[in-house]
Simulated scan of single mutants.
Amino acid sequence: MRVEMWSDLICPWCYLGSTRLHRALQQFPDADFDVVYRSYRLNPSLSREPELDMADYMTRRYHLTRERAELGHRRLEALAAREGLHYRMDLMRPVDTLDGHRVLQLARSRGVQVAVKQRFMAGVLGEGAVISDHDTLVRLAAEAGLDPDDTRKTLASDAFLADVERDEADGRRHRLQSVPFFVFGGTDRLADAASVDELARAVRRNLS
């Protein structure tokens, strides 16, 4: 069964959603899943340069006070810790994620997309990795099993740009309002960072 997840690389809820998804899938050891990460940039107008920290970004985008943004980040860090994830929201730098998504498309063509996706998210959310930086993309992707030369060639071209744009167009056709956004078996949709139980129920519906 195909499981598709639209997400962005600077979305804290997407790493939670991905982690919960794989825990849900582990409840079905006899099933065969094709997990596909689909590209969706939350803010394509962001610069490739890390101009703001995450708290400043939240204050400008959502008109919050910095104190409220930082409180929300501490709550996210605590929630992530309960899932076994390490978040450092104070280190995170929101940037344009187009090149990261192109590398993820390359990773899918090489059969290592899940591993590369998880490594990218851990880097962005836990280590302050700037996911628009090409050297960083090459390093993180290599740590997850993607050939560095393949990554460099992709980044030096416009390879997989059309794939990213197709994914984003498909997301709009699903009337996607936020990410993460899941589609099970091509039609069964589930929005937001659902719980492991909710994700498992969606899987079960589509396996029966």
Rank of each mutant, 00 (worst) to 15 (best):
D135F: 06
R23C: 04
V114A: 13
L91G: 02
V103R: 03
L125D: 03
A191Y: 10
G186K: 05
S47D: 15
V196E: 15
R41L: 14
E77H: 06
L64Q: 00
W13S: 07
I10E: 07
V179I: 06
A159E: 11
M5F: 09
R108H: 13
D135V: 12
Q26A: 15
P50E: 14
G128E: 07
V130A: 13
L137N: 11
E143G: 14
A162V: 08
G111R: 03
D96H: 15
Q177P: 03
P44M: 14
D90I: 00
Q118N: 11
F160N: 05
R204I: 07
D147W: 03
L140C: 06
V112L: 04
L9V: 09
M121Y: 14
E143Q: 14
L104Q: 10
P29N: 01
I10R: 01
F33G: 00
R41P: 04
D32C: 00
L64M: 03
A24D: 14
G123R: 03
G128P: 08
L140W: 13
L146K: 07
R152Y: 14
A141W: 13
T19I: 01
D149F: 04
P148Q: 09
L199K: 06
V95P: 06
Y40T: 02
D147V: 02
D8E: 07
L71R: 01
A142W: 06
G72M: 00
P94W: 05
G185N: 11
L155R: 07
Y62R: 01
H86W: 10
G123H: 11
Y15G: 04
L21M: 13
H86S: 11
G17M: 08
R173V: 08
D170Y: 07
N206E: 14
L91Y: 13
R66A: 01
S157C: 05
A169T: 14
